[in-house]
């Protein structure tokens, strides 16, 4: 900090610190804390208070009924009805004076109350996200290796450009492209129909979209880049002579990868896995577009519904925090397994 003041003076340093503080507190820490706080309470009315509220509602209904009668009434009935209305109104006023607003109750109920089904969806989502990560790792490893070690510089640049181009197209549109391929009357089913294997008239098409595999394919497709690039960056720094040496000393291809390439690329592999897992566990767009409610929910869709369909923000916040915890645990686990620090992540 002293060197900052020495170079830029007090005024600028204060400005930098102020900006960083606004970002740190206003955009990162406080939102998370408020989300945590929100997940820890719910609104509740004590049982007797609930009865009271019900009684007040009933009275209001009776009053409106009586007023309706009064408008039709004639002669002495009017006075009679008005007296009854006044009596009811008095009772309402009396009860409302002692009525209590719903109180906030703090506790873990929003977490504990998660139903069996929702918990199952949570476990499934985490499991699927891991599977997507593993799949992406297997799919991308050869590509990253080829681009980093085997290809000539010009070819490598072309390879990387080819990887980036699909990524400039929006995630939703990328997934949408897969929807068109896997749909009931999509490209694959049309091909099968052409072969005479399925019949659209009889609706015997293969319901790809209802299989979890459809989401996997689209997700791997959507997040491939986040796996390839970190791996490519670390593999590129590997000296090619090491590969030659391993080969000259008689190591098989597998052994070379296992003992030379993978240990060297470990930080990149870890970062790729972390990014892919985080993106797929929190992915809202992919399952929403692909499954459209037919293939079972992912946890992210559940969270969305808590907020915008059941309007239960407290439970939604609890679910969101659960997902965040799962991601944090995964990140630390991978960092531990790969023996890399937080500093390695940001390359």
């Amino acid at each position: 900090m002293r060197s900052l003041v020495a170079t830029y003076g007090r005024g600028l340093t204060a400005l930098f610190c102020g900006l960083a503080l606004i970002w740190l507190l206003g955009l990162i820490v406080l939102p998370q804390l408020f989300m945590l706080e929100r997940s820890l309470w719910w609104q509740e009315q004590p049982a007797e208070a609930f009865a009271l509220t019900k009684r007040i509602d009933d009275l209001y209904n009776e009053v409106s009924l009586l007023e309706f009668d009064r408008r039709a009434a004639e002669g002495e009935e009017v006075a009679q009805l008005e007296a009854r209305i006044a009596a009811k109104r008095a009772e309402i006023a009396e009860l409302e004076a002692v009525e209590v607003a719903p109180v906030r109750v703090y506790g873990l109920a929003n977490y504990v109350k998660m139903s069996g089904l929702h918990f199952w969806i949570f476990v499934k989502t985490i499991f699927y996200a891991m599977l997507v990560t593993l799949l992406a790792l297997v799919v991308c490893y050869p590509i990253a290796f080829a681009a980093a070690q085997l290809a000539s510089p010009a070819n490598a640049a072309l390879l990387l450009l080819g990887l980036v181009v699909p990524y400039a197209i929006n995630e939703l549109l990328r997934v949408y492209a897969w929807l068109m391929i896997l749909d009931y009357q999509g490209v694959i089913n049309s091909f099968l129909a052409w072969l005479g294997l399925v019949d659209f008239e009889k609706r015997t098409w293969v319901p790809f979209l209802e299989y979890p595999g459809a989401v996997f394919v689209a997700m791997v497709y959507a997040y491939v880049l986040f796996m390839v690039f970190p791996m490519y960056n670390t593999m590129e720094t590997l000296d090619r002579n090491q590969l030659e040496a391993a080969r000259d000393l008689g190591a098989s291809t597998w052994r070379t990868h296992w003992r030379v390439v993978i240990p060297h690329a470990r930080p990149g592999i870890a970062v790729g896995c972390i990014m892919t897992f985080m993106l797929s566990a929190g992915s809202f767009a992919v399952p929403q577009i692909i499954s459209r409610g037919t293939g079972g929910d992912w946890f992210s869709q559940l969270i969305y519904r808590q907020f915008f369909e059941s309007f239960n923000w407290n439970v939604g916040a609890a679910y969101a925090f659960t997902l965040l915890l799962a991601c944090i645990v995964f990140i630390f686990l991978v960092m531990r397994l790969a023996g890399v620090g937080i500093r390695d992540i940001a390359k």
Partner: peptide
């Protein structure tokens, strides 16, 4: 190290959670 970790953490946080937490804070 801690400061770095916090300032980098939004990259490692699922996007929906960033949206939700911001929504809740500003709703208050």
């Amino acid at each position: 190290g801690l400061l770095y970790g916090i300032l980098v953490s939004p990259i490692l946080t699922p996007g929906i959670i960033l949206g939700i937490s911001t929504l809740i804070l500003w709703r208050n």
